[in-house]
Amino acid sequence: MDLTVIQAAIPKFVAGFKLTLWMSFTGILGSLIVGLLCSLVQYFKVPVISKVFTGYVELARNTPLLIQLFFLYYAFPVIGWKMSAETCGFVGLTFLGGSYMAEAFSGGFAGIAPNQIDAGKAIGMNQFQLARYVVFPQGLSLSVPALAANVIFLIKETSIFSVIAIPELTNTALDLIGIYYRSNEYLLMLVIAYAIILIPLSIILTILERRVRYGSFGN
């Protein structure tokens, strides 16, 4: 273990760290939007579109991100759709994450006790009011644990961006190992970098989950 090696690599790792954070943030945001949209369409059983979205969710959820990225990065340019590696990463992560988030939201909406729906109906609510005042507020808090797990999962998935040469953390470390052949130092830095992102985040998410659970359960 050589400290000078570590020191010298810090700027590169900081850059990779920032890129991992940024790509995670944008990808997760995109996933949440796509996921919420899908789950709403599925909840209201919008004809045709809901079938299409269900197809998308199953396709995206049941295939590896790596192949999805290969399609975007290597195959699409052949038919003239060329995107930068970063754009491919964003689109790929959103494509994959959207399906996971859709499942999380739908799971929450489906988890509401039938009695709650009855109680809403009994005071004369229509479909929309039921959704607005009963299904969504309760369903969203029920879906928080799954959403939180997806956030962690998607951040970890950004490590796969290294295959299309996006200089995020993993790619940075592998590059450095390739050039300088110092695997110990760079791998240690890589592990620490992920720990810095994911340990505090998973603690925060656990606290959030506990809060929300307290708020939504115990009729």
């Binding site: 962690i152 970890k156 998935e157 490590s159 796969i160 290294s162 993993t170 470390a173 592998l174 190992i177 695997s183 110990n184 791998l187 890589l190 592990v191 992920y194 720990a195 994911l198 340990i199 998973s202």
Partner: peptide, 19 residues
């Protein structure tokens, strides 16, 4: 849980032979 599987693979790939 915290370390991405890609990284786990490389950890084993480099550390097992070298260390």
């Amino acid at each position: 849980r915290i370390i991405p599987t890609v990284v786990l693979l490389f950890l084993a790939y480099y550390i097992l032979p070298r260390q």
